[in-house]
Design a protein around this nucleic acid. Structure first.
Lengths: 222, 222
DNA sequence: ACTGAATCTCAGAGCAACCTCAGAGGGCGG
DNA sequence: CCGCCCTCTGAGGTTGCTCTGAGATTCAGT
């Protein structure tokens, strides 16, 4: 077992094709998790840690393109490859517009798929959004906080979104209202922001986020 | 999701148009807050922090032009774009005279609006309010005094307000009465100013604020 | 040096803002 | 159907800020 394997989420409803891909990708050394519909894909995309997503375009419960769109709208920037039977230019444009990075037309050549996947991962690791936290780093794609002298800390989707906004600009103070509007728009309780700040502090230490009483929150390590 | 989203205040009474603009601007990555009349616009314009204001010309409760004028008269210099149905030269002149930076005539092209907005924001690189204290700096946004060779000192809201007024004009002496009126209007005790001067001296050193007996206080450090 | 006025110092009451955390609810995998 | 994780809620508990008041100290003018 490769300990440093790249984690792939495979969203493919055709069991036979899914199994085939799992074998192919596992043999290449990837750590592949298959799910079989868009709902499951959305859930795992939002909650799991992935180096890349491989998504079929035609899915039960939710179209692949919609899935990508919904993930992007929630701040998930994990590099994504769409699989499709249709190969018109229009389809391709729609897929890329939704936020997918690459597009493979079925039936595809195994080697081509692997090559494109490697390219996707290579491209993305270069430009992967890693935000400096003053000593530690937030890797947005895998939703982890990496430390030179400690184990990585894993964050949930909301925790990551919150830290991301606060860390985007170290000097700036973000108000509860802004954070609530941008992350918890489906939440009634204005307390949600406080709670997630609490979660982040519990995971990362109290110094990570500074409270500016009456104004909001700010990245702690100056 | 744009991490360092620009904050826009949208003052537009037509709900349909407002919603349309919110969608358009949010999709562009802006952090948009809509309000629906001039009073609300005035309140938010005065109390919030905005990168730009987008204001309809015809509003209930207060005309858009008057809104801009009143904001300007209160020292708000946030770049502002007016939306209007009428497009005569006279209207345009009146809007710009009131202090608006740009002027878009309805019905407008989405791309044009976005382009103008970008131009507006580019032109107006917001200067974060950092006040010089002679060696040290007061960062009003995060309410801290930053020192080249020491840890930041955190101030409370009232401490910051007091120091801000005193430091605005280094040579000038501010009377107790003025300070009390501007900061402690809800306080009965005329001693409140003294107390906060004491707090500031305790945090920043006795030399920070100089007493001019019988007259008031003055910034102490050169 | 004496005196009254101005100023400084500081403990503490009252209160809003904030923190903490248990748990309900939902989605999903097994 | 059960258990897991994530999300959000709501109810205290706690902290920190604000302002008060009263005694100590300094100052200007005699």
């Amino acid at each position: 077992m490769d300990l440093d394997a790249r984690r792939l989420l495979l969203v493919e409803d055709d069991r036979r094709l899914s199994q085939l891909l799992v074998r192919l990708l596992t043999a290449e050394g990837y750590d592949v998790v298959p799910v079989y519909d868009g709902q499951a894909g959305l859930h795992h995309g939002l909650t799991g840690r992935w180096d890349a997503l491989v998504i079929d375009r035609t899915l039960p419960a939710m179209e692949g393109v919609d899935l990508v769109r919904r993930l992007r709208s929630r701040g998930i920037t994990t590099p994504t490859m769409l699989l499709t039977a249709r190969g018109t230019t229009e389809d391709r444009v729609e897929g890329l517009d939704a936020g997918a990075e690459d597009y493979v037309v079925k039936p595809f050549d195994s080697d081509e798929l692997l090559a494109r996947l490697r390219a996707l991962l290579r491209r993305h690791t270069d430009t992967s959004p890693v935000i400096d936290l003053g000593g530690r780093r937030l890797d947005v794609a895998s939703r982890r906080v990496l430390s030179p002298d400690a184990d990585p800390v894993e964050l949930s989707a909301q925790e990551c979104a919150l830290l991301r906004i606060i860390a985007a600009n170290p000097g700036r103070v973000r108000s509860r209202e802004e954070l609530h509007r941008r992350i918890f728009q489906n939440a009634d309780s204005p307390n949600a922001v406080d709670t997630y700040v609490y979660y982040l502090r519990r995971k990362l230490g109290a110094g990570m986020i500074r409270t500016v009483r009456g104004l909001g929150y700010q990245l702690g390590a100056t």
